[in-house]
Amino acid sequence: MAGVARRSAGRGRRRIGPGVAVSALLVALIALAALWPGLLARADPNAAEPVDALLGPSGAHWFGTDQLGRDVYSRVVHGARVSLFIGVGATGIALLLGCLIGMLAATCGRLVDEILMRITDVLLSFPGLLLALLVVAMLGPSSTNATIAIGLSSAPGFARLVRGEALAIREAGYVRTAVTFGAGRARVYLRHLLPNALTPLLVLALLSVGAAIIAGSSLSYLGLGPRVPTAEWGSMLAQGKDFLTISWAMAVFPGLAITVTVIAINIVGRDLQRRFEGRHPVGRF
C-alpha cells in the first residue's frame, strides 16, 4: 500500500532538466543540418579558395578554412548529413536484422534457436569495428558500404535482446489468450510478440545511433568511408591532423562536432530510457 502510494508519487511526469533540454535542442539542430544544410551554412562546402587556405576562425569563416581554403563551418554543417546517415542507417539495418534473427530464434524451435544464437555468439566475440572493417574490405569503401558494415556488426547485439524479450513475452498471458481467440501463429507473432519485444529496444536504438556515428567516423578517418571531396567529420578529422601544427581549427571543429553530437544523443537517449523504465511489456510487475 505504502509502496503503491510512493510509486504513484514517483511516477508523476519527470521534469525535463536543463541538460536534457539543451541536448534535445542540439539533436534537433544537427537533424536540421542534415536535412537542410543550406539553412545553416550559405557557403559552398566544396568551393576551394586556395588564397584563404588554413585560416583560423574569423567573422568570415567561423571555424576557419582547410588546406584548400574550403570553409570548415560549412563543411561541418554539410558533414552532418553523411554522419547521421551512417548512424541512423546502420542502426536501422542492425534493428531490422536483429529483429529478424531474434524473432526466428525465439519462435522457430530449439534447433533454429541454437544455430542462430551460436552464430551470434561468434560475431559478438569480435570487436564491432574489426567486423565492420572486414565487411568494408569485402565491399569496398563508400558511405553506403560503411553503413552496411556497421549495421551488420551491431546486429548480433540486437538479435540477442529481441530474442530474450520475445521469449519472455511468448509466455505472457495475452499471447496465450490470443490463441484462444483462434488467432494464427503468424498473427500472434506480428501483432503481439514483435511490437512488445521492440518497444524497449527503441530507446536502446537511439543510444546506438551515437555509437554508430563514432564507428562511421572511425571508418572514414581510416579512409574507408565516403570518397573525397564529400564533407564528412571523420575524414575531415583525418585531413586536419596532418595540418595540426599550422591550423588547430581544421581538426578541432570536426572532432567537436562528433563529440557534441554523440553526447547530445546519449543524454536524450538516457533520459528517454529512464522515462520508459519499468513499463515492461511482459505484464508482470
Binding site: 498471458g173 495475452y174 484462444t180 511490437p195 512488445n196 518497444t199 511482459v282
Partner: peptide, 18 residues
Amino acid sequence: RHRIQLVPQDPLGAFDPR
C-alpha cells in the same frame, strides 16, 4: 477456438499493454 474462452486470474498479464 472461440467456443471455449478463458477468464484469467491476472487480467493485467492477459492484456496486451499497448
